[in-house]
Amino acid sequence: MVTPNVTNNNICTINHSIHQTVSPPIYIFVFIIGLPANCLSLYYGYLQIKAKNELGIYLCNLTIADLFYLFSLPLWLQYFFQHDDWTYNEQLCKICGILLYENIYISVGFLCCISMDRYLAVVHPFRFYQFRTIKAAVMVSVVIWIKEILMGWLIFQNIDISKDSESHTICFEHYPIKDWEHRFNYYRFFAGFLFPFSLLLFSYCGILRVVRKSHGTQKKTKVQIKCLVSNTVIIFLVCFGPYHILLVIRSLFETTCMFAAKIFNVYHFSLLLTSFNCVADPILYCFSSESTYQNLVKMRDSCLTCLRCFRTKKKECNQLKTPETLTKSSSVPVDEATRLNKLQSANEMKDSSTISIDKL
């Protein structure tokens, strides 16, 4: 039962039990799955950059933003396990809070860049080529980071910590919200969510129109592209939609502790939904690619080959090396190389579709 009251400093004290029951398992899941997934995503982005693909710039920046957020999760977990009592200094609280909130808008910014890059690649492959270069992607990325750093600095200057009725140090939360937060929340909704979502919807609708009219694209590839596009839009809405809608509701109606208490659990659950974006990004933008799957298969085969070679060498050390065994052992790499060459030749002979899932 949520029981709000007002302290002597006119700060609401609300039951934060959701932070001890729901938040820890979700944050632990996101951290365990998101950290290795984003590390692989960063490697995939590096391969894209190495191949002179501007999409790799956006993927690397998106992944870096997610990793910054993931690294702050252990501190938030300790905060929740201590019943919302921040034991570190105030500056670290502000930094962790900025990483938590600004990761949303850095991610949204680069998701828009990826969607627009895909739109231009599929719908206008030659007309706007100057916007699809490594140099252009770097410039856009710098603008996004500067913008969000400035917004983070604004929050850093205005936010502070407070005490509840049990003398716990509350980090990065105020109930009811302050006057400057009302205006800032409107900006976050329109510029940080609604406008990017409109761009996302516009770009993917354009892609679907081209894919539907393409006669050279295989039916299976069309289905894959449609699933990728629809899943991207759905995940964007699920991860960011509820949080931003509740931001507007809080800005419109949160003037008392009573309303803050009523909306507290729903609002913080919507905030938890945004963390799933760190898991969804690598799956949607990296591991859904056919080339990524092939790279992972090659990585797995290389590991298995190394393991077999290690076992073979260990076994040979315990045996007498006769001329016959030496001949057999020397023939293994030749057979393996022959098999790999045949597979590579077969892959090169495969026909490519007009619109490939890797282009998306």
Rank of each mutant, 00 (worst) to 15 (best):
M1R: 08
V2K: 08
T3H: 13
P4R: 06
N5I: 08
N9I: 04
N10Q: 12
T13P: 01
H16S: 12
S17I: 05
H19K: 02
Q20I: 03
P25G: 05
I33H: 03
G34E: 02
L35N: 00
L35R: 00
A37D: 02
A37P: 00
C39K: 04
Y44P: 02
Y46L: 10
A51V: 03
A51E: 11
K52G: 01
L77V: 12
Q82C: 08
Q82G: 11
D84P: 00
Q91C: 10
Q91I: 15
L92W: 13
L92M: 15
C93R: 00
I95D: 07
G97K: 06
I98G: 06
I98W: 07
L100Y: 15
L100D: 15
Y101D: 15
Y101N: 14
V108D: 03
F110E: 03
C113G: 04
M116K: 03
D117E: 12
A121Q: 03
H124E: 11
F126W: 03
F126A: 09
R127G: 02
A136P: 04
A137C: 10
V140N: 00
V142T: 12
W145M: 09
I146T: 11
E148C: 13
G152V: 05
L154C: 12
I155L: 13
D160R: 10
I161Y: 14
S165L: 09
S167C: 10
H168E: 04
C171V: 09
F172A: 04
E173M: 12
E173W: 08
E173K: 09
H174W: 09
Y175K: 07
Y175V: 01
Y175D: 10
D179L: 14
W180H: 14
W180Q: 14
H182E: 14
N185E: 13
R188Q: 14
A191K: 00
I207L: 05
L208K: 04
R209L: 13
R209E: 11
V210D: 05
V211F: 06
H215P: 06
G216W: 06
T217E: 05
T217C: 01
Q218S: 13
T221S: 11
K222N: 07
Q224N: 15
I225R: 01
C227Q: 15
V229D: 00
V229P: 01
V233I: 15
I234M: 13
F236V: 06
L237H: 04
Y243A: 12
H244Y: 14
I245M: 14
I245S: 09
L246K: 02
S251L: 06
F253H: 13
F253I: 08
T256H: 08
A260N: 05
A261R: 03
I263D: 03
H268A: 01
H268G: 01
L271F: 15
L273C: 13
P282W: 08
I283R: 01
Y285P: 04
S289H: 08
T292K: 04
Q294A: 08
N295M: 05
S302C: 12
L304H: 03
K313I: 09
K313V: 09
E316L: 13
C317W: 11
E324W: 06
T325H: 07
L326S: 10
S329N: 14
S331M: 13
S331D: 15
S331R: 10
S331F: 10
E336I: 00
N341K: 10
K342W: 08
N347F: 09
S353D: 15
S356P: 06
L360I: 15
